[in-house]
Design a protein around this nucleic acid. Structure first.
Lengths: 197, 197
DNA sequence: CGCGGGTTTGATGATGCTCAAGCCCGGTGG
DNA sequence: CCACCGGGCTTGAGCATCATCAAACCCGCG
């Protein structure tokens, strides 16, 4: 049942896990269902688990004083989501996480995480890689955000994630790009016009 | 001589290093001087070392097709700089790093880094924390970048780093905020006017 | 003194926001 | 079965913010 996690780990560290290791790992994950109505992680509340997305989409975001949503990242199948800061520090989370459709996740508590790191060094290594990659991606996103216009960012987002518009409502794509839904609509309209010409 | 590094590590992991551990660590760092003219890390070239900033300021940035500089982060005393992606993957770096004034750094090679992680588990833990914190900071920066106007971003930057304008030229502060030097100048002018009223 | 990099100031224009209305479409209830 | 929501997407007009182009200014330094 946790085969996806095993494959995910093996792919990232470019090593295979023994069956014993995989079995151990399985024991530390418990399935969680979310239909998208309730929050998986809430701002201000300690996030005591990290989640592996098995099926569905999760969405990490902040809400500003005006109530506007700003999405920090989307988590599709095979992604890990959670508030890392809160998870490791035990302090209140700064992000919110919700499912965008009926979603199954596998949750790992902090205690089990620590055990896993000690018992399976490969797991700790894996997690370091995970965070490194995430860090890097976010640094690049900052750089791209400065360098590119909203239109360019949208085009390259669609290029790297062609299926994203089919799974995520447009107003959330806009909030990921840092613009308003109206602006994204206009950008799409402009691009469609260019293509047909 | 590497006392700053020891303190830096101990502070972050909230544990003390033994004298033996500190001595071992010292052996893995070699001092590097930079007057700011040459690059410490260059885009396209593999970054084989991570650097601890002992004195001075380093500046991580990308350059777009038009030649404009976009600074990703500033590294003051006690910061670690380097192209993490390149350092761990062995692929060409995506960032550039330069000193902004005569700067001394301590460099650690990837081989020594691996040795350090095996011989001193506390060091691996420390580094994981370092990357985690960096990751978190960059996620927050993305969120803030969406939420706040350039003026608000400038105000909160000055609040958290009051000494920054004294050490970094204004056009680089602008490039960190994602705006042009002219715009920052106008923002500063506006704020000064408000204060005096 | 004059040069040059950094900063300031001004005028104009592009990009994305705000406010506002209309449209499309799936779901609900009469 | 259809009328009527309501959420999300689109479209329009005017506005705010920041970029661009360009010139002037300031000041340390050769």
């Amino acid at each position: 049942m946790h085969d996806a996690i095993r494959k995910n780990i093996e792919a990232k560290i470019n090593q295979t896990l023994t069956d014993d290791e995989a079995k151990l790992l399985s024991g530390w994950f418990t399935p969680v269902q979310s239909n998208g109505k309730e929050r998986i992680v809430s701002e201000g509340v300690v996030c005591r688990k990290m989640f592996f997305v098995d099926a569905g989409v999760a969405h990490t975001f902040v809400v500003d004083k005006k109530g506007a949503v700003h999405t920090v990242q989307f988590g599709f199948e095979g992604y890990w989501v959670g508030d890392i800061y809160s998870f490791f520090s035990g302090k209140p989370a700064i992000f919110n996480i919700e499912a965008l459709e009926p979603t199954t996740l596998f949750a790992m508590t902090h205690a089990d995480f620590e055990t896993a790191c000690t018992r399976i060094p490969k797991f700790e290594h894996f997690f370091r890689m995970l965070i490194q990659n995430g860090y890097l991606a976010s640094l690049q996103r900052i750089a791209n955000g400065f360098r590119d216009s909203a239109e360019q960012r949208y085009v390259s987002l669609i290029k790297t994630q062609p299926n994203l518009p089919q799974r995520v409502p447009q107003y959330l794509v806009a909030s990921y790009l840092g613009i308003k839904p109206q602006s994204l609509s206009r950008i799409r309209q402009k691009l469609a016009k260019q293509k047909s010409v």
